[in-house]
Design a protein around this nucleic acid. Structure first.
Lengths: 216, 216
DNA sequence: CGACACTTTGACGCACTTCAAAGGGGGTGG
DNA sequence: CCACCCCCTTTGAAGTGCGTCAAAGTGTCG
């Protein structure tokens, strides 16, 4: 068994594929708002979104809610922190996810280093996503919303049509804003013809140039 | 060679120790504000702080600066993102760091799985730190400063005396605030006897109870 | 078709920023 | 060793972006 540099420090490979989770994972169907795991529960499993969307969240002492991340088809989640989940995870919409026991994955990794490779790739991607999230959070409201739209455009389509699976409240809690501010900002972006709201959850990026300048 | 669950998904082990980086790393001395690597440079090396302190930062289009992280003795840095550094890294004070080529570490990991284990532990710790940073950034100014003081107390001493290696500007850019707001908040915390400023960079946590309630 | 939840819009207040100036504090040169 | 000076920090006053409170509009599912 030989391990080369690219397997230990993999580049960002395609996120969908027939990896260990696909082979060993058990499928699970979830209704809207169904809890997948709770805050502080032991982190025994990893999850991969097949269809639908998942959010991780955390309730603060004063009742505010912070969304840690949104996970879309192909994304892996459940690896936050060491032994216990720091966030809870819920389905945003009707969803299907694959579930795999971490211990089973570890056993497999012992025999097949492409599995360890896959795991490192996933972790690196999560690291990059969190850094992106930090960068967004220090900006103004308009920059946060624009940054969010760009992120979603890149993840759900790559094109200019963005279908948002989550509510304004979810977006607000992800960006550390209120729903009113998110709504007002969206309206403003529409006023200046930077975006078009085909419906509340269908958005077209009309002018990436303008949006880019608003992105800080 | 056998790999068990805890080596693939390690718990948070002690961060100092005689790991691969200590054995193979090359020592490097840095003056205050010396750049260790720049934004967008290829990420060929990993680094470990021996003494002093390091910050990672990024300059936005409009000149604002975001601090990604502070690294203290024992901390490993340079693993942000896939192939290129998303942040630059500079020494905050006179510092000594160990440098190791990632490819060398990867080769070692192929023969000794405790190295891969060590790498995963480091990555997991970084993941947890970023989540903490996100949580801090959605709060009010006072909560951010208190959260920062708690974080530093835990990292530099564990006790109530906090020696800050970084300037108010660094703190402000880490927390997404202005230096004036940081300064005012510190003064306020001193007024209510929650902390004591022995000097600008020596702070004593006088009342963790009060500080805890201010931490959201 | 009607009811309810989500979203948008409006008015006002406050926390943080901005602009400005007055303290320190520590390091260097005399 | 002390004093001066520069830079970092603190403090003050005024402006503003976002939050809060309130109400109207919109889509959707029974």
């Amino acid at each position: 068994m030989k391990v080369n540099a690219s397997s230990i420090f993999p580049t960002m490979a395609g996120k969908t594929g027939a990896g260990a989770i696909e082979q060993m994972g058990v499928s699970m169907n979830l209704k809207r708002d169904a809890e997948i795991y709770g805050e502080n529960e032991p982190a025994e499993y990893l999850y991969k979104v097949v269809s639908g969307a998942v959010r991780t969240s955390r309730i603060l002492a004063d009742g505010r809610r912070q969304i840690g991340a949104f996970f879309l088809p192909g994304d892996v989640f459940g690896l936050e922190s060491g032994m216990a989940h720091a966030f809870s995870a819920e389905a945003i919409a009707e969803s299907r996810v694959l579930v795999i026991k971490r211990s089973a994955l570890a056993a497999l990794a012992a025999r097949d280093n492409t599995v360890a490779q896959e795991f490192l790739t996933i972790t690196n991607r999560e690291l990059a996503r969190l850094q992106q999230h930090v960068m967004v959070l220090i900006k103004t409201a308009e920059e946060r919303v624009v940054g969010f739209l760009f992120e979603m455009a890149a993840r759900v389509s790559g094109k200019n049509l963005v279908e948002l699976p989550m509510s304004r409240r979810d977006i607000a809690d992800y960006l550390g804003l209120t729903i009113e501010t998110v709504s007002r900002t969206m309206s403003h972006l529409e006023d200046i013809a930077a975006i078009e709201l085909q419906s509340k959850r269908r958005i077209i990026l009309r002018n990436r140039g303008v949006l880019g300048t608003l992105n800080g």
